[in-house]
Design a protein around this nucleic acid. Structure first.
Ligand SMILES: [Mn+2]
Ligand SMILES: [Mn+2]
Ligand SMILES: [Mn+2]
Ligand SMILES: [Mn+2]
Lengths: 217, 217
DNA sequence: ATATATTTTTAGTCAAGACTAAAAATAGGG
DNA sequence: CCCTATTTTTAGTCTTGACTAAAAATATAT
């Protein structure tokens, strides 16, 4: 059985592992989880003892199959609860994360699978992130970052990579929501800002914003 | 902010306090939460420091207004989640308790109040226990224990006092469910067993069983 | 290749929440 | 009223998961 703290480490390693790197550094984990590298070293040894992680001193950490499945289950629960909160309890997409951080640790396979069925087996959470199935798998996402599109191309906003409430509130303020049709009008070479056509108006978004918006076509 | 452990102590004191006693003994609390009296003494001091409990050495514990409200909120969450699990996620009444024990500690006032609304503001949980409102209040229950009825009287099964899964499974096996009409047919003086007419057949229940069944008329 | 900077681990502490064993207080029976 | 049984508290430990500071390993730059 995994503790709450172990689950948070597993999830951090899981997410960092997706970002390319085979082995994840203790410092990277510490930053993600807002703790210290020394604490990470301690915990990573425990995860290795439980056969949830591979760990070689000074070389970094990766998940075992068991660890990856455990992490995927936590992510699955997090995202299913986010869907529930938005679809059924009148939460907006910028309010769900902190509650989901708590709900993702509730232990009951029946609960997560019944919740999945109740929600109609959703494939994506309110931020466009994919929801792993029971086995931890999900279809590879095919959405493309705005910065990689051609001028004139159009798509549906399918994923916001940053789902911090400050970013989501920025999107709310600018009337941008998942599912909206967006057209790329112009790239500005000076600062890499992008002019886009939204549902309601033409706006200029910074490179930092554009980096976090993915469209599907 | 209360910790998970503090909340479990508050809830235990809350429930024991309902059973008559003004001040609750450390031993009684220890038994209820399956710990040791010495651990209870430690925790009760912390609760007193936080103004959640009144505590006088050797004299027992009671809740302050803040403590009672905090405890009632935990009970409210527990019972609302039980309703959700039964009504929406295909749990049966003997499967909900352990999951509700976890869900009752999720911290979000919006969550509990939206859940309440989603469920249609239920007044009782799947075991017939009343659900406290935001202020910790609930209407006094008027159901009567089977042992206090007259032979020949009839009522609707409204509350099972013991909601352990072993007792609930006994009721399932005997086709007894909340809402069923039950008629008292005979009291046996020798062992205080009771013959009752259920939905489907006539059965004899022991005193121990009868003590836990409450009817409303 | 060596010196320096950065990263990572180790050693030593701390707080929360549990426990056991011993001491202290209370309650009951004669 | 006192002696004993029971209850409750205190003292001392343990485990988990965090931290700081120091040591060790690795990476980088001249
Ligand atoms: Mn989230
Ligand atoms: Mn999300
Ligand atoms: Mn329950
Ligand atoms: Mn209940």
């Amino acid at each position: 059985m995994t503790t709450l703290s172990e689950e948070n480490y597993l999830k951090a390693i899981y997410h960092l592992g997706k970002q390319g790197a085979v082995a994840v550094s203790t410092n990277a984990i510490a930053e993600k989880i807002e703790s210290k590298a020394s604490s990470v070293t301690d915990m990573v040894k425990k995860l290795a003892d439980k056969n949830l992680a591979h760990y070689i001193k000074y070389q970094g950490v990766s998940l075992t199959n068991d660890g990856r499945l455990a992490a995927a289950l936590v992510v699955r629960k997090h995202r299913l609860w986010e869907v529930f909160l938005v679809e059924n309890l009148n939460f907006s997409w910028d309010e769900v994360h902190d509650v989901a951080e708590q709900l993702e640790h509730i232990k009951s396979l029946k609960l997560v699978n019944e919740l999945d069925a109740f929600l109609g087996f959703p494939t994506h959470d309110p931020h466009g992130d994919p929801i792993p199935d029971k086995d931890g798998n999900y279809a590879p996402t095919k959405s493309i970052n705005i910065l990689e599109l051609e001028v004139g191309s159009e798509g549906v906003l399918a994923l916001v990579k940053d789902s911090s409430d400050v970013f989501l509130k920025y999107l709310n303020k600018n009337n941008l929501a998942l599912g909206d049709v967006i057209k790329v009008l112009e790239f500005e070479p000076f600062d890499d800002s992008v002019t886009i056509q939204t549902k309601t108006k033409e706006i200029i978004i910074s490179k930092e914003v554009a980096k976090n918006l993915y469209l599907s076509q």
